[in-house]
């Protein structure tokens, strides 16, 4: 093999990887900008389109912008509540779908798939239509947001937990029964611990979906303002740099969770 061929081969082997890295860069540029802008000294200018100078003010005075931290707290609260409800309901449903037979199972699978395949704007308008039709248009607020969030998180929970449960080796449960564990003990000592990572992943996904949702929430929130709604509001006027601080914090927390989880699961097989 001569040098030219070797070079050609090397490029061929690495071209795809380079392409992939470029796509990753594309995905990360905005996040890098968010992080950078969280240190932007914007005090003298309303123009957010440029980096004016380095400051820690945005971090030390996160709650400066009127109403932002309240909106964040509200979104966290809604996120937690919706996550807990959706995770419980979705996990039960996943067990039903994988482990039990019942009339209407395939219809149920379809019903669970559909919210993931519907545009948010349509789901949001439908839900609003329902609330208006039932005379609840005056009561739009935390409860209706919660209802909407549980609704769209539910499908993702079911799908995630179902996948984990379907991959679970039934022999393990039989082995537990063979080793003197009753059905209940088998569930709590074997099935549940093994499905738990799937449930945790589903909860994490739920929380981020809920925290991040704008389109459905905006239609069903009434006067309540969540963090995405706050951002939407200020986007028309002038974005306070603290918004980027919140974005950065969220990114770091999620990165920490994902990387931590990855390291925890990787340690075991790596030593084999």
């Amino acid at each position: 093999m001569n040098g030219v061929q070797r070079l050609g081969r090397w490029i061929g082997d690495h071209l795809v990887l380079f392409g992939g890295l470029l796509v990753v860069a594309y995905m990360f540029t905005p996040i890098a900008v968010v992080m950078l802008m969280s240190f932007n000294d914007n005090s003298r200018s309303r123009n957010i389109y440029a980096f004016r100078g380095f400051t820690l003010d945005n971090w030390t005075n996160v709650c400066g912008p009127n109403g932002m931290c309240e909106a964040v707290a509200r979104s966290v609260g809604i996120g937690l509540a919706a996550t807990i409800a959706a995770t419980i309901l979705g996990t039960l449903a996943a067990f039903a779908l994988v482990r039990h037979s019942f009339v209407g199972r395939s219809a149920m699978n379809t019903l669970i798939f559909l919210p993931m395949a519907s545009p948010e704007i349509v789901m949001g308008s439908s839900l609003l239509a329902l609330f208006v039709a039932t005379g609840n248009s005056g009561r739009l607020g935390l409860v209706t947001i919660f209802i909407a969030h549980v609704m769209f998180c539910l499908s993702f929970v079911v799908v995630t937990v179902k996948a984990r449960l379907a991959g679970l080796d039934r022999n393990l449960e039989q082995a537990a029964m063979d080793l003197y564990a009753s059905e209940a003990v088998t569930f709590w000592k074997v099935t549940f611990p093994l499905v738990l990572p799937g449930i945790a992943a589903a909860a994490l996904l739920s929380f981020s979906l809920s925290f991040d949702d704008f389109i459905i929430t905006n239609l069903n929130a009434g006067q309540t303002v969540t963090f995405p709604m706050f951002v939407w509001g200020v986007a028309q006027r002038g974005v306070p740099m603290q918004v980027n601080v919140i974005g950065t914090i969220m990114f770091l927390i999620s990165l920490l969770i994902v990387v931590g989880n990855m390291l925890a699961t990787r340690r075991k097989p790596a030593a084999a």
Partner: peptide
């Protein structure tokens, strides 16, 4: 695994905040 994490990570950072940062990247004097 690292690359997978990099794909998933943006999921967890506010959609709106990231879109606003595109506004910055594509700005007229950017």
């Amino acid at each position: 695994n690292l690359m997978l994490v990099l794909v998933i990570a943006p999921f967890f950072t506010s959609f709106l905040v990231r879109t606003l940062s595109w506004k910055l990247i594509l700005a007229d004097d950017g």
